[in-house]
Design a protein around this nucleic acid. Structure first.
Lengths: 199, 199
DNA sequence: CAAATTTTGTACTGACCTGTCCAATACTTC
DNA sequence: GAAGTATTGGACAGGTCAGTACAAAATTTG
Protein backbone atom coordinates (compact mmCIF):
# COMPACT_ATOMS: atom_id res chain seq x y z
CA UNK A 1 0.00 0.00 0.00
CA UNK A 2 2.69 2.47 0.96
CA UNK A 3 6.18 2.94 2.18
CA UNK A 4 6.67 1.25 5.55
CA UNK A 5 8.64 2.65 8.47
CA UNK A 6 12.28 1.76 8.71
CA UNK A 7 12.36 2.11 12.48
CA UNK A 8 10.73 0.37 15.40
CA UNK A 9 8.34 2.71 17.18
CA UNK A 10 8.87 1.02 20.52
CA UNK A 11 12.65 1.26 20.31
CA UNK A 12 12.37 4.93 19.43
CA UNK A 13 10.06 5.45 22.39
CA UNK A 14 12.57 3.75 24.66
CA UNK A 15 15.35 5.98 23.42
CA UNK A 16 13.22 9.09 23.97
CA UNK A 17 12.25 7.86 27.44
CA UNK A 18 15.89 7.43 28.26
CA UNK A 19 16.72 10.95 27.06
CA UNK A 20 13.93 12.55 29.11
CA UNK A 21 14.88 10.39 32.06
CA UNK A 22 18.52 11.42 32.02
CA UNK A 23 18.13 15.10 31.19
CA UNK A 24 14.63 16.16 32.13
CA UNK A 25 11.83 17.52 30.00
CA UNK A 26 12.95 21.11 29.51
CA UNK A 27 16.61 20.30 28.91
CA UNK A 28 15.82 17.70 26.24
CA UNK A 29 15.39 19.47 22.90
CA UNK A 30 13.67 17.97 19.89
CA UNK A 31 17.12 17.90 18.31
CA UNK A 32 18.33 15.77 21.24
CA UNK A 33 15.37 13.48 20.68
CA UNK A 34 16.28 13.08 17.01
CA UNK A 35 19.82 12.11 17.94
CA UNK A 36 18.73 9.79 20.74
CA UNK A 37 16.20 7.96 18.59
CA UNK A 38 18.12 8.16 15.32
CA UNK A 39 14.99 9.52 13.63
CA UNK A 40 14.54 12.68 11.63
CA UNK A 41 12.25 15.49 12.76
CA UNK A 42 9.56 14.45 10.31
CA UNK A 43 9.48 10.89 11.58
CA UNK A 44 9.27 12.04 15.18
CA UNK A 45 6.48 14.52 14.58
CA UNK A 46 4.73 12.15 12.21
CA UNK A 47 4.77 9.39 14.80
CA UNK A 48 4.48 11.21 18.13
CA UNK A 49 2.69 14.49 17.26
CA UNK A 50 4.65 16.77 19.57
CA UNK A 51 7.42 16.85 22.14
CA UNK A 52 4.85 16.93 24.90
CA UNK A 53 2.96 13.95 23.49
CA UNK A 54 6.18 12.02 23.12
CA UNK A 55 7.02 12.81 26.72
CA UNK A 56 3.62 11.67 27.88
CA UNK A 57 4.06 8.37 26.06
CA UNK A 58 7.60 7.98 27.37
CA UNK A 59 6.40 8.53 30.93
CA UNK A 60 3.56 6.07 30.49
CA UNK A 61 5.98 3.52 29.12
CA UNK A 62 8.36 4.08 32.00
CA UNK A 63 5.57 3.55 34.50
CA UNK A 64 4.50 0.33 32.78
CA UNK A 65 8.07 -0.91 32.53
CA UNK A 66 8.75 -0.38 36.21
CA UNK A 67 5.43 -1.29 37.73
CA UNK A 68 5.11 -4.80 36.30
CA UNK A 69 8.07 -6.42 38.07
CA UNK A 70 7.38 -4.39 41.21
CA UNK A 71 3.82 -5.67 41.29
CA UNK A 72 5.11 -9.22 40.91
CA UNK A 73 7.37 -8.77 43.91
CA UNK A 74 4.68 -7.23 46.09
CA UNK A 75 2.11 -9.90 45.23
CA UNK A 76 4.50 -12.86 45.51
CA UNK A 77 2.62 -15.22 47.81
CA UNK A 78 5.78 -17.29 48.20
CA UNK A 79 7.36 -14.57 50.30
CA UNK A 80 6.47 -13.11 53.65
CA UNK A 81 5.21 -9.53 53.72
CA UNK A 82 8.49 -8.24 55.08
CA UNK A 83 10.47 -10.14 52.48
CA UNK A 84 8.38 -8.58 49.74
CA UNK A 85 9.15 -5.07 50.94
CA UNK A 86 12.81 -5.94 51.33
CA UNK A 87 12.87 -7.41 47.83
CA UNK A 88 11.24 -4.25 46.51
CA UNK A 89 13.96 -2.11 48.08
CA UNK A 90 16.59 -4.41 46.60
CA UNK A 91 15.01 -4.02 43.21
CA UNK A 92 15.00 -0.23 43.55
CA UNK A 93 18.73 -0.26 44.28
CA UNK A 94 19.41 -2.69 41.44
CA UNK A 95 17.53 -0.66 38.85
CA UNK A 96 19.19 2.46 40.21
CA UNK A 97 22.49 0.88 39.16
CA UNK A 98 21.19 -0.76 36.01
CA UNK A 99 20.26 2.53 34.38
CA UNK A 100 23.13 4.85 35.21
CA UNK A 101 24.89 7.19 32.83
CA UNK A 102 28.23 6.21 31.33
CA UNK A 103 30.00 8.41 33.86
CA UNK A 104 28.40 6.41 36.67
CA UNK A 105 26.05 9.14 37.89
CA UNK A 106 22.48 8.29 38.74
CA UNK A 107 19.60 9.43 36.56
CA UNK A 108 17.15 8.61 39.35
CA UNK A 109 13.58 7.71 38.57
CA UNK A 110 11.63 9.32 35.75
CA UNK A 111 8.52 9.47 37.90
CA UNK A 112 10.27 11.27 40.74
CA UNK A 113 12.10 13.52 38.30
CA UNK A 114 8.81 14.42 36.65
CA UNK A 115 7.04 15.07 39.95
CA UNK A 116 9.80 17.48 40.86
CA UNK A 117 10.42 19.17 37.53
CA UNK A 118 7.13 19.14 35.73
CA UNK A 119 4.07 17.81 37.52
CA UNK A 120 2.91 21.20 38.79
CA UNK A 121 2.79 22.58 35.26
CA UNK A 122 1.66 19.46 33.41
CA UNK A 123 -1.70 18.07 34.52
CA UNK A 124 -1.49 15.12 32.11
CA UNK A 125 1.82 13.98 33.53
CA UNK A 126 0.51 14.58 37.04
CA UNK A 127 -2.53 12.43 36.31
CA UNK A 128 -0.41 9.55 35.00
CA UNK A 129 1.74 9.72 38.11
CA UNK A 130 -1.20 9.99 40.47
CA UNK A 131 -2.80 6.92 38.98
CA UNK A 132 0.46 5.03 39.29
CA UNK A 133 0.78 6.16 42.91
CA UNK A 134 -2.68 4.83 43.73
CA UNK A 135 -1.83 1.46 42.23
CA UNK A 136 1.55 1.37 43.90
CA UNK A 137 0.07 2.20 47.30
CA UNK A 138 -2.53 -0.50 46.82
CA UNK A 139 0.15 -3.09 46.06
CA UNK A 140 2.16 -1.98 49.06
CA UNK A 141 -0.90 -2.38 51.27
CA UNK A 142 -1.36 -5.90 49.96
CA UNK A 143 2.18 -6.83 50.92
CA UNK A 144 1.97 -5.03 54.25
CA UNK A 145 -1.31 -6.71 55.16
CA UNK A 146 0.23 -10.05 54.25
CA UNK A 147 3.13 -9.22 56.54
CA UNK A 148 0.79 -8.33 59.34
CA UNK A 149 -0.92 -11.68 58.96
CA UNK A 150 2.26 -13.72 58.70
CA UNK A 151 3.80 -11.91 61.64
CA UNK A 152 6.78 -10.35 59.86
CA UNK A 153 5.36 -6.84 60.11
CA UNK A 154 4.43 -5.88 63.63
CA UNK A 155 4.13 -2.10 63.39
CA UNK A 156 0.59 -1.29 64.49
CA UNK A 157 0.04 1.71 62.22
CA UNK A 158 -2.56 1.16 59.54
CA UNK A 159 -1.44 -0.29 56.23
CA UNK A 160 -2.03 2.97 54.38
CA UNK A 161 0.36 4.88 56.63
CA UNK A 162 2.98 2.18 56.26
CA UNK A 163 2.48 2.09 52.49
CA UNK A 164 2.99 5.83 52.22
CA UNK A 165 6.07 5.56 54.40
CA UNK A 166 7.58 2.84 52.22
CA UNK A 167 6.77 4.84 49.13
CA UNK A 168 8.35 7.96 50.59
CA UNK A 169 11.43 5.93 51.51
CA UNK A 170 11.80 4.89 47.90
CA UNK A 171 11.55 8.52 46.83
CA UNK A 172 14.17 9.42 49.42
CA UNK A 173 16.46 6.68 48.15
CA UNK A 174 16.08 7.99 44.63
CA UNK A 175 16.95 11.53 45.64
CA UNK A 176 19.87 10.26 47.75
CA UNK A 177 21.18 8.28 44.80
CA UNK A 178 21.06 11.35 42.57
CA UNK A 179 22.84 13.29 45.28
CA UNK A 180 25.67 10.78 45.07
CA UNK A 181 24.87 8.03 47.60
CA UNK A 182 26.58 4.73 46.82
CA UNK A 183 25.09 1.25 46.88
CA UNK A 184 25.97 0.54 50.50
CA UNK A 185 24.34 3.79 51.59
CA UNK A 186 21.16 3.04 49.68
CA UNK A 187 21.02 -0.45 51.17
CA UNK A 188 21.57 1.01 54.62
CA UNK A 189 18.68 3.44 54.14
CA UNK A 190 16.45 0.57 53.04
CA UNK A 191 17.46 -1.63 55.96
CA UNK A 192 16.79 1.16 58.42
CA UNK A 193 13.39 1.78 56.87
CA UNK A 194 12.59 -1.90 57.38
CA UNK A 195 13.30 -1.41 61.09
CA UNK A 196 10.24 0.83 61.19
CA UNK A 197 8.01 -2.02 60.08
CA UNK A 198 8.76 -4.15 63.12
CA UNK A 199 9.21 -1.81 66.05
CA UNK B 1 29.98 59.54 43.84
CA UNK B 2 27.42 58.01 41.54
CA UNK B 3 23.85 56.99 41.14
CA UNK B 4 22.75 54.55 43.82
CA UNK B 5 20.61 51.49 43.28
CA UNK B 6 16.90 51.88 43.74
CA UNK B 7 16.43 48.24 44.73
CA UNK B 8 17.57 46.01 47.57
CA UNK B 9 19.91 43.32 46.29
CA UNK B 10 18.86 40.85 48.96
CA UNK B 11 15.17 41.28 48.22
CA UNK B 12 15.86 40.76 44.53
CA UNK B 13 17.82 37.63 45.34
CA UNK B 14 14.94 36.33 47.43
CA UNK B 15 12.53 36.91 44.58
CA UNK B 16 14.81 35.11 42.13
CA UNK B 17 15.27 32.25 44.59
CA UNK B 18 11.54 31.93 44.83
CA UNK B 19 11.15 31.87 41.06
CA UNK B 20 13.79 29.16 40.60
CA UNK B 21 12.31 27.26 43.52
CA UNK B 22 8.81 27.23 42.12
CA UNK B 23 9.60 26.66 38.45
CA UNK B 24 13.05 25.11 38.20
CA UNK B 25 16.18 26.40 36.53
CA UNK B 26 15.40 25.66 32.90
CA UNK B 27 11.81 26.80 33.00
CA UNK B 28 12.67 30.15 34.57
CA UNK B 29 13.66 32.58 31.83
CA UNK B 30 15.59 35.78 32.38
CA UNK B 31 12.37 37.56 31.51
CA UNK B 32 10.65 35.70 34.34
CA UNK B 33 13.44 36.79 36.65
CA UNK B 34 12.94 40.42 35.63
CA UNK B 35 9.26 40.19 36.43
CA UNK B 36 9.82 38.31 39.70
CA UNK B 37 12.41 40.76 40.96
CA UNK B 38 10.90 43.89 39.43
CA UNK B 39 14.30 44.74 37.91
CA UNK B 40 15.25 45.44 34.31
CA UNK B 41 17.61 43.20 32.40
CA UNK B 42 20.48 45.62 32.83
CA UNK B 43 20.12 45.70 36.58
CA UNK B 44 20.00 41.93 36.80
CA UNK B 45 23.04 41.37 34.60
CA UNK B 46 24.85 44.29 36.20
CA UNK B 47 24.27 42.85 39.67
CA UNK B 48 24.32 39.08 39.14
CA UNK B 49 26.48 38.58 36.02
CA UNK B 50 24.45 35.76 34.46
CA UNK B 51 21.43 33.56 34.94
CA UNK B 52 23.64 30.77 36.13
CA UNK B 53 25.43 32.98 38.64
CA UNK B 54 22.13 34.26 39.94
CA UNK B 55 20.93 30.72 40.35
CA UNK B 56 24.07 29.76 42.22
CA UNK B 57 23.58 32.67 44.62
CA UNK B 58 19.88 31.87 45.01
CA UNK B 59 20.69 28.27 45.87
CA UNK B 60 23.37 29.32 48.36
CA UNK B 61 20.92 31.71 49.97
CA UNK B 62 18.26 29.02 50.16
CA UNK B 63 20.68 26.65 51.85
CA UNK B 64 21.69 29.30 54.38
CA UNK B 65 18.09 30.26 55.01
CA UNK B 66 17.01 26.71 55.72
CA UNK B 67 20.03 25.34 57.50
CA UNK B 68 20.25 27.87 60.30
CA UNK B 69 16.98 27.04 62.08
CA UNK B 70 17.43 23.34 61.34
CA UNK B 71 20.85 23.41 62.99
CA UNK B 72 19.31 25.14 66.00
CA UNK B 73 16.76 22.37 66.35
CA UNK B 74 19.29 19.57 65.99
CA UNK B 75 21.72 21.11 68.49
CA UNK B 76 19.07 22.09 71.05
CA UNK B 77 20.47 20.61 74.26
CA UNK B 78 17.12 21.23 75.97
CA UNK B 79 15.53 18.45 73.95
CA UNK B 80 16.12 14.74 73.83
CA UNK B 81 17.64 13.31 70.66
CA UNK B 82 14.35 11.85 69.54
CA UNK B 83 12.55 15.10 70.20
CA UNK B 84 15.06 16.94 68.05
CA UNK B 85 14.46 14.65 65.10
CA UNK B 86 10.72 14.91 65.62
CA UNK B 87 10.96 18.70 65.77
CA UNK B 88 12.99 18.66 62.56
CA UNK B 89 10.30 16.67 60.79
CA UNK B 90 7.69 19.08 62.11
CA UNK B 91 9.69 21.98 60.78
CA UNK B 92 9.96 20.31 57.36
CA UNK B 93 6.19 19.95 57.20
CA UNK B 94 5.66 23.51 58.41
CA UNK B 95 8.00 25.06 55.85
CA UNK B 96 6.45 22.82 53.22
CA UNK B 97 3.19 24.63 53.93
CA UNK B 98 4.72 28.06 54.54
CA UNK B 99 6.10 28.33 51.02
CA UNK B 100 3.35 26.97 48.80
CA UNK B 101 2.08 28.51 45.59
CA UNK B 102 -1.12 30.52 45.59
CA UNK B 103 -3.00 27.54 44.21
CA UNK B 104 -1.92 25.49 47.22
CA UNK B 105 0.49 23.21 45.37
CA UNK B 106 3.84 22.40 46.89
CA UNK B 107 7.04 23.79 45.41
CA UNK B 108 9.06 21.28 47.43
CA UNK B 109 12.62 22.03 48.42
CA UNK B 110 15.01 23.92 46.18
CA UNK B 111 17.85 21.62 47.15
CA UNK B 112 15.93 18.47 46.24
CA UNK B 113 14.60 20.11 43.09
CA UNK B 114 18.12 21.05 42.06
CA UNK B 115 19.54 17.60 42.81
CA UNK B 116 16.90 16.12 40.55
CA UNK B 117 16.82 18.68 37.75
CA UNK B 118 20.30 20.09 37.55
CA UNK B 119 23.00 18.65 39.79
CA UNK B 120 24.28 16.17 37.20
CA UNK B 121 24.92 18.96 34.71
CA UNK B 122 26.00 21.70 37.10
CA UNK B 123 29.08 20.87 39.18
CA UNK B 124 28.92 24.17 41.08
CA UNK B 125 25.39 23.53 42.24
CA UNK B 126 26.31 19.94 43.03
CA UNK B 127 29.22 21.13 45.16
CA UNK B 128 27.04 23.54 47.13
CA UNK B 129 24.56 20.77 47.80
CA UNK B 130 27.20 18.23 48.70
CA UNK B 131 28.71 20.57 51.25
CA UNK B 132 25.28 21.22 52.72
CA UNK B 133 24.65 17.48 52.87
CA UNK B 134 27.85 16.88 54.81
CA UNK B 135 26.92 19.55 57.32
CA UNK B 136 23.37 18.29 57.59
CA UNK B 137 24.48 14.71 58.15
CA UNK B 138 26.89 15.91 60.84
CA UNK B 139 24.12 17.76 62.64
CA UNK B 140 21.86 14.72 62.41
CA UNK B 141 24.59 12.53 63.90
CA UNK B 142 24.93 14.97 66.79
CA UNK B 143 21.23 14.70 67.56
CA UNK B 144 21.17 10.94 67.06
CA UNK B 145 24.17 10.43 69.32
CA UNK B 146 22.48 12.57 71.94
CA UNK B 147 19.40 10.39 71.60
CA UNK B 148 21.46 7.27 72.01
CA UNK B 149 22.92 8.67 75.23
CA UNK B 150 19.63 9.89 76.65
CA UNK B 151 17.91 6.63 75.79
CA UNK B 152 15.29 8.01 73.37
CA UNK B 153 16.95 6.41 70.34
CA UNK B 154 17.54 2.71 70.76
CA UNK B 155 18.18 1.56 67.19
CA UNK B 156 21.63 -0.05 67.24
CA UNK B 157 22.70 0.95 63.73
CA UNK B 158 25.53 3.45 63.64
CA UNK B 159 24.70 7.13 63.71
CA UNK B 160 25.77 7.67 60.10
CA UNK B 161 23.30 5.09 58.82
CA UNK B 162 20.52 6.61 60.90
CA UNK B 163 21.47 10.10 59.76
CA UNK B 164 21.30 9.08 56.11
CA UNK B 165 17.97 7.40 56.74
CA UNK B 166 16.52 10.52 58.36
CA UNK B 167 17.86 12.63 55.52
CA UNK B 168 16.37 10.30 52.92
CA UNK B 169 13.06 10.41 54.77
CA UNK B 170 13.04 14.20 54.46
CA UNK B 171 13.70 13.87 50.74
CA UNK B 172 10.87 11.37 50.48
CA UNK B 173 8.54 13.70 52.32
CA UNK B 174 9.46 16.50 49.94
CA UNK B 175 8.75 14.38 46.89
CA UNK B 176 5.52 13.10 48.44
CA UNK B 177 4.42 16.65 49.11
CA UNK B 178 5.04 17.64 45.51
CA UNK B 179 3.12 14.57 44.42
CA UNK B 180 0.13 15.90 46.36
CA UNK B 181 0.39 14.45 49.86
CA UNK B 182 -1.48 16.48 52.47
CA UNK B 183 -0.29 17.52 55.91
CA UNK B 184 -1.66 14.47 57.70
CA UNK B 185 0.09 12.17 55.24
CA UNK B 186 3.41 13.95 55.67
CA UNK B 187 3.07 13.77 59.45
CA UNK B 188 2.24 10.10 59.21
CA UNK B 189 5.36 9.45 57.12
CA UNK B 190 7.46 11.30 59.68
CA UNK B 191 5.92 9.44 62.62
CA UNK B 192 6.52 6.11 60.93
CA UNK B 193 10.12 7.04 60.24
CA UNK B 194 10.55 7.81 63.94
CA UNK B 195 9.44 4.23 64.66
CA UNK B 196 12.64 3.09 62.98
CA UNK B 197 14.75 4.96 65.52
CA UNK B 198 13.47 2.95 68.45
CA UNK B 199 12.88 -0.59 67.24
C1' DC C 1 26.26 74.10 39.41
C1' DA C 2 29.30 70.99 36.88
C1' DA C 3 31.94 66.76 36.46
C1' DA C 4 32.19 62.10 37.28
C1' DT C 5 30.13 57.78 37.74
C1' DT C 6 26.83 54.29 38.19
C1' DT C 7 22.20 52.67 37.20
C1' DT C 8 18.53 51.90 34.21
C1' DG C 9 15.49 51.23 30.06
C1' DT C 10 15.38 49.84 25.46
C1' DA C 11 16.82 48.00 21.40
C1' DC C 12 19.41 44.65 19.56
C1' DT C 13 22.15 40.13 18.48
C1' DG C 14 22.82 35.53 17.17
C1' DA C 15 21.65 31.16 18.63
C1' DC C 16 18.39 27.80 19.50
C1' DC C 17 13.63 26.43 20.20
C1' DT C 18 9.31 23.74 18.55
C1' DG C 19 6.80 22.76 14.81
C1' DT C 20 5.60 22.92 9.60
C1' DC C 21 6.13 22.33 4.69
C1' DC C 22 7.26 20.04 0.68
C1' DA C 23 9.56 17.51 -2.62
C1' DA C 24 12.03 13.25 -3.18
C1' DT C 25 11.92 8.56 -2.01
C1' DA C 26 10.65 3.83 -1.37
C1' DC C 27 7.48 0.45 -0.81
C1' DT C 28 2.91 -2.14 -1.65
C1' DT C 29 -0.73 -3.42 -4.39
C1' DC C 30 -2.94 -3.98 -8.57
C1' DG D 1 5.78 -2.32 -14.16
C1' DA D 2 2.63 1.52 -13.00
C1' DA D 3 -0.19 3.96 -9.62
C1' DG D 4 -0.86 5.27 -5.22
C1' DT D 5 0.58 6.30 -0.58
C1' DA D 6 3.21 6.83 3.59
C1' DT D 7 7.91 7.97 5.06
C1' DT D 8 11.82 10.66 5.01
C1' DG D 9 15.29 14.54 4.86
C1' DG D 10 16.13 19.16 4.77
C1' DA D 11 14.92 23.70 4.47
C1' DC D 12 12.17 26.92 6.58
C1' DA D 13 9.22 29.97 9.95
C1' DG D 14 8.16 32.52 13.90
C1' DG D 15 9.15 32.94 18.57
C1' DT D 16 11.95 32.91 22.61
C1' DC D 17 16.31 32.30 24.66
C1' DA D 18 20.58 34.41 27.28
C1' DG D 19 23.31 38.08 27.02
C1' DT D 20 25.15 42.82 25.12
C1' DA D 21 25.40 47.73 23.68
C1' DC D 22 24.47 52.18 24.46
C1' DA D 23 22.47 56.35 25.50
C1' DA D 24 19.59 58.74 28.88
C1' DA D 25 18.88 59.47 33.69
C1' DA D 26 20.07 60.16 38.39
C1' DT D 27 22.92 61.03 42.11
C1' DT D 28 27.22 62.35 44.76
C1' DT D 29 31.27 64.94 45.16
C1' DG D 30 34.02 68.82 44.26
Amino acid sequence: MARPRTFDEERALDAAMRAFWANGYEATSTQDLCEATGLGRSSIYNTFTSKHDLFRRALARYIDLMSVPQAEILEDAGRSGMERIRALFTRIVDTEYEYREDDGTSIGCLTVNTVVELARRDPEAAALIERDLDIRLGLLRVALDAGRRDGTITNRRDADALARFVNATIGGMRVSAQAGADRATLESIADTALDALRP
